[in-house]
Design a protein around this nucleic acid. Structure first.
Lengths: 158, 158
DNA sequence: CTTTCCGAAACTAGACTGGTTACAGTTTAT
DNA sequence: ATAAACTGTAACCAGTCTAGTTTCGGAAAG
């Protein structure tokens, strides 16, 4: 039932927003307004993205966050690794009986399969960049009836 | 940080155990002893596997669980779907601003990427069967120094 | 009818998530 | 220097999921 946390979704959303407003610093309040959450939640995620070298943040008047790299150079895999410090996708059961044929070696076998599955998932994320996401979002937006042809004219969460 | 629950690992462990003891019913107590957990935890997981048609369970004296299908016909993907009723691997953030260019369409784009990632992971699980796991576990066991050449001679959790 | 076994409910402690408030520190502008 | 704007971080909370445990009812076998 438990899913990977929505930090991933929020992080990609924010990075796409920063790619949209590529040249100006964006405050956590503006980002939170677009994501519809609390500014502290955004700042927590920005901390992870900053540690990963994906964004640069400036405090003070006129401060905010900006992309530290080009949107084409930021893959969703980097975002995933920045906001989910998880080493394994699947949890292993703790201490199976080591004296029987199954319990003694099941963990090594499972570890191999689980690693393959995790890497396959990460392989998909590695092939998508923030620029891809931003482009697809814009395409969807302009494809709608009544959509504005100039995205910069949209609501800016001022 | 949160991972997919260890129910998956326990389920594969138990199914490999049942493949090992293919012809006799195994009680939840014996399975729990091999997994090193509580019999009720095993029974909960067996309920999911039974609903998925992977095992058949008999109550009463001499009862227990047996594989309902051949180990070669049970993939880890079926096990995954049996014990994790999750529809999505990644959580979506709840209600982004629909009036701005990013928030209005980010969810559809993210949904596509997340689905691809989830399916890539499931594709790996679909290619591994319980028979594969059992065979690899046996290979690892016999490859160890001092390992018994006949796996049925190992501790049986009686 | 007793034993063995499953199924299910109820309860617990621990962990993670997302949200919130609060406050210290830093940068800019005046 | 002082005020304003913004980040960073700690602390706390409620909700959810997980895994474990106890308990009890019911089914099957002998």
């Amino acid at each position: 039932m438990s899913t990977i946390s929505s930090r991933m979704a929020v992080a990609v959303h924010v990075l796409a927003y920063l790619a949209w407003r590529r040249d100006e610093p964006i405050t956590s309040e503006r980002m939170a307004s677009s994501v519809n959450t609390n500014p502290v939640v955004v700042r927590r995620i920005m901390g992870s993205l900053r540690n990963a070298g994906l964004v640069s943040v400036q405090p003070g008047v006129g401060g905010g966050a900006q992309l530290a790299r080009e949107p084409e150079d930021i893959t969703l895999l980097e975002v995933y690794r920045a906001v989910e410090e998880k080493e394994e996708l699947f949890a292993m059961h703790s201490e199976p009986c080591r004296h029987c044929d199954i319990g003694g070696h099941i963990r090594e076998v499972l570890h191999g399969v689980f690693c393959n599955a995790h890497q396959a998932m990460q392989g998909v994320l590695a092939q998508v960049t923030i620029a891809d996401v931003f482009r697809e979002v814009r395409q969807q937006a302009t494809g709608c009836v009544g959509a504005k042809p100039e995205p910069h004219a949209a609501v800016q969460h001022a």
